[in-house]
Nucleic acid binder design. Structure first.
Lengths: 187, 187
DNA sequence: TACTGTAGAGAACGATCGTTCTCAGCGCAA
DNA sequence: TTGCGCTGAGAACGATCGTTCTCTACAGTA
């Protein structure tokens, strides 16, 4: 049973890695089978279809994202620092070798319209993040709309870092966030 | 010859529409052939391969984007207004029925890593935009990095509007832009 | 009227996709 | 030992992809 659990995870991890690297359509079930080192039969025993595996990969990705944000916030003492920790987290991520943009944005762009399930998972993930930012903004005592603006900066940094290949998008976003926060608090 | 030119355009327009709607991998050459109303032979006479057609579609898309931005800026009297016109342009775009995010971000997410040509066209397009914003910021007499921040807001608004389905991302970006511009000019 | 060149319609090809099926091998109860 | 159930390896299937080829119809010329 623990065997099954680790094989399940191995499949999800392998699929996540390949999907993120090459895009979803470009990766066949056979490549996932090879990367995960399991039989095709087992693969289809764990996931009834590729669509189901895609959904599971995205769900797993939300957990990883949440954990990363939480870890970055853990060493921050104030709501303001926790907000800025988001951009520090992004900065570190953008500098990893295999960074290739936000997996949700990529998945949505590739098959969003054709796959309501994927569109919904991506939407939910972005909403969760917006709510997290909104909560911190409220703790800060700043007006609600600051949260929308700070989330926008984080989204923009991700696509800019991916396409332009400029990791300093994170520090630009951070600088803009500092300005917006200060103005909001001074009002 | 004008016959050929309009058929060429019909093909590009049809492909652009389908790629944007359904994603690139999901659209076959046969669907493009049908949508454009040309023969397969003609299609491959105009474009040697699907890759070439994809590149042409993206190049055309940069022209449309540039024209949209220019048109929005045309009715603005000052650099500041021309900067804010960007977000008004986005607002109108986000509210169109068939809006499905930035075509460059989508294409890059889908096959960026596997297609250097597509990655380069997307990168070049984003760089052009950043330069345009940078030029306006310079006319404004504001520090260089304001341009990076304003571009970030525009990028973030596009992905947020697409995934979350909230066209008001444009007005949030605009509000943030106003704040950042005012602070930059006051300094 | 016969000949030539071109273009349209779509059949055909080889590759690859997601998915299912076959079959040999192995652990294990009786 | 015999029979049974399960598993792994991968062959096989039908669909669809990008691309090419065939064949037919016809416009223009002598």
């Amino acid at each position: 049973m623990s065997e099954v659990a680790t094989e399940h995870n191995r499949i999800v991890d392998a699929a996540a890695r390949l999907f993120y690297e090459r895009g979803i359509h470009a990766v066949g079930m056979d490549a996932i089978r090879t990367e995960a080192g399991v039989s095709l039969k087992r693969l289809y025993g764990e996931f009834a279809s590729k669509d189901e595996l895609i959904a599971e990969v995205l769900r797993r990705r939300t957990e990883i994202w949440d954990a990363g944000i939480a870890a970055a916030a853990a060493s921050a003492a104030t709501p303001r620092e926790r907000l800025l920790a988001i951009y520090d987290f992004l900065d570190g991520w953008f500098r990893t070798d295999d960074f290739r943009g936000c997996g949700f944005i990529n998945a949505f762009g590739e098959l969003g319209a054709g796959s309501p399930a994927v569109a919904e998972i991506a939407r939910a993930q972005k909403e969760r993040f917006q709510r997290y930012v909104g909560r911190l903004v409220r703790e800060l005592g700043a007006p609600e709309q600051l949260g929308d603006q700070l989330a926008l900066l984080a989204e923009g940094a991700q696509t800019t870092a991916a396409i332009s290949g400029r990791p300093d998008a994170a520090s630009h976003a951070r600088a803009a966030a500092v300005t917006l926060i200060d103005v909001a608090l001074a009002a």
